[in-house]
């Protein structure tokens, strides 16, 4: 496997759900790469399919009702979707980790932090087929607590989650995801409100870890500010497909898809010039989505053209937008 191939590469991923109202075609051909040692962001509004994408990658999507109808998920050169279940399970518990940045669901209030973390080490060891005693497992836990900059490891090991501050709990959750020495970290940020300083501190920590531990990061969020601060490359998702992807700085300097522009316009700006128009309409019903570009019913630039689904056109090197406005001929 050449080292310049992405660690994770999702190709034309399509996922449908069986629902009461019929078949919901949620993912409509998602393409996404996470090159080694980089930080990649996946942004989009609630319901656009970020978590379905992530769960499909992690193999935690319940099938049924979900069905992967098409596509590949290459991890380190192997297709996760076709490999034997046992092998995939092993990968899931060792080479990739999830961070749900929601302390209330990730930490059990009735067990001590150390106990919960050691459990994870035990599970990950079992998946790898190794065995360590309590002392060695505890050593690993303390090592990780230090990695996430929790100074007083011994005390935290014995603490219950409630005895720790929100920021400390966030660090522990990140630590839990590092226990198995993953190569890919997937962080799914919830909509809950962290204060700006805690958020900032956690983002910096993740950033340091990615660099120091040579991790690759896939960060899922609907906070565009966080994406701008934290990632090297961004994928913008709308209604089940990637509508724009670009190096991060370039995306914010030169947003090209009408959806990306509309989304950016909704973010209140620090210069006090907010307008509150929002985006007219709402996400489509996945059991009966619009033909062609799924954004066209809400798009100010929509034409008949948009009834045909646009491919990803190159806007600049490394920057694509799936919108007919960017069809090369249109510029000539």
């Amino acid at each position: 496997m050449p080292d310049d191939a992405p660690l994770l590469s999702v190709r034309d991923l399509r996922v449908s759900f069986r629902t009461f109202d019929g078949q919901a075609d949620v993912l409509q051909g998602v393409n996404l790469d996470v090159p080694r040692g980089t930080r990649v962001g996946l942004v989009g509004e609630s319901g656009c399919g970020k978590s379905v994408t992530m769960k499909t990658i992690m193999g935690t999507l319940a099938t049924p009702p979900a069905r992967v109808t098409h596509g590949q998920i290459m991890f380190d050169g192997q297709d996760l979707l076709t490999m034997p279940a046992a092998r995939r399970n092993r990968l899931k518990g060792t080479d990739m980790s999830m961070v749900f940045q929601d302390p209330t669901t990730s930490l059990n209030p009735v067990f001590r932090v150390g106990h919960q973390m050691e459990d994870i080490v035990r599970w990950s060891d079992r998946r790898r087929g190794i065995q360590r005693n309590h002392k060695a497992r505890k050593a690993r836990v303390l090592e990780v607590l230090e990695m996430v900059r929790l100074a007083d490891g011994e005390r935290i090991y014995d603490a219950f989650p409630i005895q720790l501050s929100g920021g400390m709990r966030q660090r522990i959750i990140i630590g839990m995801a590092l226990l198995n020495e993953p190569r890919l970290l997937i962080a799914d940020e919830p909509g809950t409100a962290l204060d700006v300083t805690t958020q900032d501190e956690i983002l910096r920590l993740m950033d340091d870890l990615v660099r120091e531990e040579g991790l690759s990061l896939l960060m899922i969020t609907h906070n565009l500010g966080v994406v701008r601060q934290m990632t090297d490359h961004v994928y913008v998702m709308y209604a089940g497909s990637v509508v724009e992807d670009s190096p991060t700085a370039e995306l914010f300097d030169n947003p090209s898809h009408p959806y990306t522009k509309a989304l950016l316009a909704c973010v209140p700006k620090l210069d006090g010039t907010a307008t509150y128009e929002g985006i007219g309409g709402s996400l489509p019903d996945y059991t009966d989505p619009p033909a062609g570009c799924r954004f066209h019913p809400r798009c100010p630039h929509a034409t008949d053209r948009c009834l045909t689904r646009p491919p990803a056109f190159t806007v600049r090197p490394g920057h694509t937008a799936a919108c007919w406005l960017h069809e090369p001929e249109a510029h000539a």
Partner: peptide
């Protein structure tokens, strides 16, 4: 008390406009 923290920016914009 954090009336729009659970909402998307596009939905937040409309709720804020309504409140104004």
């Amino acid at each position: 008390d954090e009336p729009t923290s659970a909402l998307d920016v596009s939905v937040q914009a409309k709720v804020i406009e309504l409140l104004l």
